Amino acid sequence: MNRVSADLRADGSSGATRYAFRAVAATSPSLDSSIDIVVCVPSFRRPQHLWLTLESLANQRTERRFAVVIVENDAVQHESVPVAAQFLASGKVPGLCVVEPRQGNCHAINAAFETAMTTFPTASSLLMIDDDEIASQDWLETMTRSAETTGADVVGGPVWPDFDDDMKRGLRQHPAFRPAYDSSGPVPVIYGGGNCLIKRPVFTKLGDPAFDLGFNFLGGGDYDFFTRCRRAGFRFHWAAEAIIVETVPNSRTNIGWLMRRSLRIGVINYYIQRKAAPTVWSRAQLIVKMFAMLPFSLFRAGRVFLSERKAVVAMHPMIVAVGSALATVGFEPQPYEASKIVL
């Protein structure tokens, strides 16, 4: 993945240099640096929903002290800053809002975690929620208790869709929306960062930046991060009761968006596996594997159709396989570039 290595070289500066780009836009009236739990909220052009996300954090049923770190990733319009400032000024939850001027999904997430660990040097549990999500009232308590009782290094939880159009409820079973696991317990890996808790030692071992900048505009930086966590020997746990609800607009339920999402998943899968294939021979084997998945995906699609009876769901494995095959010849969509984002 040429873009990955190029972006890493371009950002190979020291941590201090990178942090210097970020400006603190707002803080709460009081900020206790000894807080042990921090919730990170990357934000980009969703000011109305950001308020709902932050309010859901303020409504958490827990006795645990926690703070929030909000990252504004739109250095031009700054739509999230007034919302974050108003929330922080209310004193409901302590924290701060910083502006990460370098646009990109991974830039924003790295800024959130790096700011959290710098501002709260003793914080051991770092959680993340997206700015189009609503946390259930027991979310934070369930996530942190799961980490404590299981000793897991990474805890994940379900993100259930809340469709603007109730007629789209049948898409809950589509892999783009269905959580990876149904019940709580140890799992081999989690796939998304929209509902996660990561223990501080994970960041120390994986190095800096934590989220590979090559996935900035493609997406999948979270899956790549968790894949590296698994290879490093970290343990995962799934907390099925730690529910988050994601608002899904109509623009994300049409057949075109779903097909592009499936294609992108295939591309992400290829690039993550390619990172683990260092030799010419291993990469050649990977390419053969990607193309071999095409006929196999037809069999999988048939099985899915027989169980779900929905063509749009059954098409997913086929389109994922196509995406992986196209990635071997350089296909790399960039849906998270500012000019291409459809909220």
Results as ranks from 00 to 15, higher is better:
Thr115Asn: 10
Met318Ala: 10
Ile319His: 06
Arg235Gly: 06
Glu241Lys: 15
Val99Thr: 14
Leu171Arg: 09
Met259His: 12
Arg61Phe: 11
Val322Glu: 01
Ser90Lys: 07
His107Asp: 04
Ala239Tyr: 06
Val69Gln: 04
Arg300Gln: 15
Glu79Leu: 05
Met259Ile: 12
Gly214Pro: 12
Ala180Trp: 04
Thr279Gly: 01
Trp257Ala: 08
Ile198Asp: 01
Pro161Tyr: 05
Lys168Met: 14
Lys275Pro: 09
Phe305Tyr: 15
Gly323Phe: 03
Ile37Gln: 08
Pro29Val: 06
Gln86Trp: 07
Ala210Trp: 12
Ser90Cys: 07
Ser136Phe: 07
Thr144Ser: 01
Ala321His: 01
Asn195Lys: 14
Pro101Asp: 01
Trp51His: 11
Glu100Gln: 12
Ile268Val: 15
Ser125Gln: 11
Val202Thr: 10
Cys229Glu: 04
Tyr223Asp: 03
Val245Trp: 00
Phe87Arg: 05
Val202Asp: 00
Arg274Met: 08
Val187Leu: 03
Leu213Gly: 08
Phe234Ala: 07
Leu57Glu: 02
Gly256Cys: 03
Ala284Val: 10
Arg200Leu: 07
Ala108Glu: 02
Met128Lys: 11
Arg261His: 15
Phe299Cys: 12
Met1Gln: 00
Leu218Ser: 05
Arg309Ala: 00
Gly233Leu: 05
Ser30Pro: 00
Tyr336Lys: 11
Thr17His: 02
Glu141Trp: 03
Pro179Lys: 13
Ala327Trp: 07
Ser90Pro: 08
Val312Met: 14
Glu308Val: 05
Gln285Leu: 13
Arg200Met: 01
Ala123Val: 10
Gly323Leu: 04
Asp7Tyr: 14
Gly219His: 13
Ala327His: 03
Ala284Arg: 12
Phe226Leu: 08
Ala276Gln: 13
Ser80Val: 02
Glu133Gln: 04
Ala314Asn: 07
Ala232Phe: 01
Asn216Ala: 15
Thr204Cys: 00
Thr53Val: 10
Gln285Trp: 13
Tyr191Met: 07
Ala311Leu: 15
Ala327Met: 07
Gly185Met: 04
Ile287Cys: 05
Asp138Gln: 10
Tyr19Gly: 02
Asp11His: 15
Trp238Gln: 05
Ala58Glu: 06
Gly221Val: 12
Leu8Ser: 13
Pro179His: 14
Trp139Asp: 00
Pro121His: 06
Glu148Ile: 08
Ile319Ala: 01
Ala20Ser: 15
Arg231Ile: 06
